[in-house]
């Protein structure tokens, strides 16, 4: 460890470069910072401060008394983290959140890609209608989406039970969709996927317009079938975009809160808790702000893995352009 951390030789200050070149490089470096300054300041205020505060909180024993009196909270060391990491309920929540994210993202990307490909095949009017319809879905706040799904799947007055019950030989009266976690999660996942498809479809559709027609025509001349040209031409061109939208979906779905919270009436059973709701309940319902923060910090660390791929891809695109 120490061997590695020994300060490097003063490489930076070796041979003084010619004056003219140095000035040029100097302005070249300051300008981007200057331009990015306001945005960075905003990000620091909106993201860095709360993040920093959260990290500090996660090492404190912060409760209602501290919140109201403004008194300094006692330092708790790693206690919050130990509490969280040794709690079997927490690990169940982590597993559930990861499973949900994997399934919902896979479905969203596959369906989104399918719809995007379909949009290239249909006529202009139909495509426009598809875009408008998807914009409506996209424009709905998550809260409203969740309320609509909750109403549709209500056991007493839900339209879904009513319709399924109409099928001959099927008894779905008063069927409770949240009786088993599997069915409940199918409802929640459907809602999330339904709401996530428009962004993917429209973005990927934009990406598909970049696929040169000549390439596809050449492939057809060479005797490639539709699947082969999709694999060999469309997928490689779409890949950077696909990676980004997939990573974004992972980030969004990993933080699932509104849908399961609303569909379980703000009182999710343990089987319907995700990392976000679990952390919220600990922090704001139980007033253990330190513990809730520790869970959030762990969530952020878990997400960093996904973020790394995403940021790398962003830089790669920058280089290509």
């Amino acid at each position: 460890m120490y061997a590695v951390e020994t300060p490097p030789a003063p490489v930076q200050e070796s041979p003084r470069p010619p004056v003219t070149r140095r000035r040029k490089r100097g302005t070249g470096k300051a300008l981007p910072w200057l331009l990015a300054g306001p945005a960075l300041a905003l990000l620091a205020a909106l993201l860095a401060y709360p993040m920093g505060r959260m990290i500090v909180l996660s090492f404190q024993d912060y409760g209602l008394k501290q919140l109201w009196s403004g008194a300094t909270a006692p330092f708790a060391g790693l206690e919050n983290y130990l509490d969280v990491l040794t709690d079997s309920a927490f690990w169940a929540v982590v597993r559930r959140t990861i499973l949900f994210t994997a399934v919902s993202v896979l479905l969203t990307v596959l369906i989104g890609l399918g719809v995007a490909l379909l949009m290239r095949r249909v006529g202009k009017t139909v495509r426009l209608m598809m875009i408008v319809a998807m914009m409506f879905v996209w424009a709905l706040p998550a809260l409203v989406q969740a309320q609509v799904f909750k109403m549709m799947t209500d056991s007493d007055v839900g339209v879904l039970n009513y319709l399924i019950d109409k099928l001959p030989g099927v008894d779905f009266q008063n069927h409770s969709w949240f009786f088993t976690p599997t069915q409940g999660w199918i409802v929640i996942t459907s809602c999330v996927v339904w709401a996530g498809v428009p962004f993917l479809a429209i973005t990927l559709n934009a990406g598909l317009t970049q696929v040169p027609k000549e390439l596809l025509e050449a492939a057809t001349v060479d005797g490639a079938n539709a699947w082969q040209s999709f694999r060999a031409i469309i997928v490689p061109i779409l890949k950077p975009l696909l990676v980004i939208v997939t990573t974004l979906s992972v980030i969004w779905n990993f933080g699932l809160f509104t849908q399961n919270w609303v569909m379980r009436d703000g009182k999710p059973e343990p089987e319907f808790q995700t990392l976000a709701t679990y952390s919220y309940v600990q922090a704001f319902a139980q007033n253990k702000y330190g513990l809730g923060s520790a869970i959030s910090v762990i969530t952020v660390l878990l997400l960093l893995g996904a973020m790394a791929i995403y940021i790398r891809q962003m830089f790669k695109i920058g280089e290509v352009d």
Partner: peptide, 8 residues
């Protein structure tokens, strides 16, 4: 593509 990525 870059714009989409940045917006995202």
């Amino acid at each position: 593509k870059r714009k989409i990525a940045i917006a995202a």
